[in-house]
Simulated scan of single mutants.
Amino acid sequence: MHQLTLTIPEETVLALNVKPEQLQGEVLLAAAMKLYKLSKLSSKAAANASGYSQSFITFTTSKI
Rank of each mutant, 00 (worst) to 15 (best):
M1T: 06
H2E: 15
H2T: 15
H2P: 10
Q3D: 10
Q3A: 12
L4G: 04
L4S: 13
T5I: 11
L6M: 13
T7S: 15
T7N: 15
P9K: 14
P9Q: 13
P9A: 12
P9R: 07
V13Q: 12
L14V: 14
L14S: 13
A15L: 11
A15F: 12
A15Y: 06
L16G: 07
V18R: 14
V18K: 09
V18M: 05
P20E: 13
E21C: 12
E21P: 05
Q22P: 09
Q22W: 14
L23R: 06
Q24S: 14
Q24L: 02
G25E: 11
G25F: 02
E26G: 04
E26D: 10
E26Y: 10
V27D: 13
V27M: 10
V27I: 15
L28Q: 10
L28G: 08
A30V: 10
A31R: 09
A31G: 08
A31P: 02
A32F: 00
A32K: 02
M33A: 06
M33Q: 03
M33E: 06
L35I: 04
L35P: 00
L35S: 06
L38M: 10
L38S: 05
S39G: 08
S39L: 11
S39Y: 07
K40I: 10
K40M: 09
K40R: 15
K40A: 11
L41F: 03
L41P: 00
L41D: 04
S43C: 06
S43G: 13
S43E: 07
S43L: 00
A45W: 03
A46Q: 01
A47L: 03
A47V: 04
A47E: 04
A47W: 05
N48S: 14
A49V: 02
A49C: 00
S50W: 03
S50C: 04
G51Y: 02
G51P: 01
G51W: 01
Y52C: 01
Y52F: 10
S53F: 00
S53L: 01
Q54H: 03
Q54N: 10
S55I: 10
S55H: 02
S55G: 03
F56Y: 11
F56G: 03
I57P: 01
T58K: 07
T60Q: 10
T60F: 05
T60C: 02
T60K: 11
T61D: 01
T61C: 06
K63N: 07
K63R: 13
K63W: 06
I64S: 01
